[in-house]
Every structure is written in structure tokens, then in C-alpha cells.
Simulated scan of single mutants.
Amino acid sequence: METNKIKKVLIALDYDKSAESVAEAGYSLAKAMNAETTLLHVIYEHLTYYVEYYSAYEIQLDHIKDLRMSMHYFLDEIKKHLGDEWIHTMIKEGVIAQSILEAAEEINADVIVLGAHSRNWFENIIMGDDAKAVLKKTKVPLFIVPIKTENK
């Protein structure tokens, strides 16, 4: 039986305190497989941008450039935390699940790593379940890191 070798791992991160844990889990998988690693952040297409579970603020369109710069810094900090200068970073704008799938296709990822949050019902209505949306449409395996949050 011939098995496919995992050569490229895409780690999708949101701007959340759990991102470090998701990155660590995905990077461990990539290192075990001696695979190339790419960190991805998707800037959500709507004007309301979720910074943490419990707060949101609106961003003016002219601030997207500043947001992109902040996200580059954020991904670079995660990269430093993982201690590997060869990790690639990528930022996309759009619908989260669709952008993750597009990024996976662009880099020819063999595995997609993402965190699955347990949000409250109201947040699920607004944001949807991105992990489920990726799972429904992906052509590559998913490595899902469960993220437990305090119920508020």
C-alpha cells in the first residue's frame, strides 16, 4: 500500500488567544512529517471584525491597511514563538472558510490545521461555524484543534 507523504501544512489562525495553541499543534504535526508550514490569517470580509470572543468593533475601510500590517506582525510573532524562520505566512481577505480553502489550493496543502471554538449560540448565528464549512468543502484532510472557552 502506497501512502501520500505530507509535504505542506496550512495552519489557519484567527486573532485570538488560542492561536498560539493551534499553531503549536499544527507545527508539531508539520515537524513530525518534515513538512513545509504556512500560517494563514483571514481578514473577515464584513466591516465588523472579531478581536476576541466577547468584543467586536467596526473597522473603517481605510484601516484595512493598518489591519493587514497588524496581522503580519501577529503572524511573525507566532512564527518567532515556534522558533522557525522558514515558516511561511499568508493573509487573505474574504469569507473565512472559502479563503482557507483557496489558500490550501494555492499552496497545494496536504493538511489544513484549524481551531474549532465552542462559542455561544449568538456568536454561532453571526459567525457561523467555519470549521464545519471547511470540512464540508475540503478536498484535503483536516487536523482540528479543539478550543474550549469559558461559558459567559
Rank of each mutant, 00 (worst) to 15 (best):
D14W: 02
Y50M: 07
Y44H: 15
E105Y: 12
S18N: 13
A103E: 01
G115T: 05
D84N: 15
L39N: 01
G26V: 04
S28P: 01
H72M: 13
L47F: 14
E36S: 08
Y53A: 11
K8P: 00
A19M: 08
L29S: 04
L29F: 12
V9Q: 00
E123F: 03
G94K: 10
K136T: 07
E20H: 07
L135I: 13
Y53L: 10
M69H: 08
V95P: 01
D16P: 02
I6R: 03
K65T: 09
K7T: 04
E150F: 15
M33A: 11
L13S: 02
E2P: 15
E85S: 11
N4K: 13
H46T: 14
H117W: 05
W86G: 04
K17S: 12
M90T: 01
Y49Q: 13
I112R: 01
K7D: 05
A23N: 04
A35Y: 02
L29N: 04
R68M: 10
K79M: 05
E45W: 14
S21N: 11
A19Q: 04
K7S: 09
V145D: 02
Q60P: 06
E123Q: 15
D130C: 12
L47M: 13
L61R: 08
T138P: 02
I11E: 00
K137D: 10
I78L: 09
N108I: 04
L142N: 05
T138C: 05
I78N: 01
T38I: 02
E52Y: 10
D129P: 02
K17P: 06
A116L: 07
I100D: 01
Y49S: 07
W121S: 15
F74E: 03
S55D: 09
L67F: 06
N108K: 13
L39P: 00
I59T: 08
V134H: 01
S21W: 03
S28E: 14
L101N: 02
L82A: 06
A131L: 03
K137F: 11
L101P: 00
A25D: 07
L47Q: 08
I147G: 01
T149N: 11
H81W: 08
D62S: 14
H72I: 12
T3D: 14
E93P: 00
D16N: 12
E58H: 13
Y57M: 15
W86M: 08
M71K: 09
D84L: 06
Y15M: 10
K92A: 07
W86Y: 12
I87A: 02
M33L: 15
E106N: 10
D129C: 11
R119V: 09
P141F: 05
I125F: 11
F143T: 05
H81K: 15
I144R: 06
A133E: 12
I64W: 03
K148T: 10
Y53G: 07
A104K: 00
K80V: 11
T138L: 04
T3W: 08
I59D: 03
N151D: 15
N124W: 07
H117D: 07
M33C: 11
S118R: 15
I59F: 11
K92R: 14
D14S: 12
E106A: 09
F74S: 03
T48S: 13
D130V: 12
Y53D: 10
Q60K: 08
L61W: 13
E123N: 14
I107P: 00
E123V: 10
K65N: 15
K80G: 06
H41D: 03
E93V: 09
K92S: 09
E77N: 12
S21R: 09
A133Y: 05
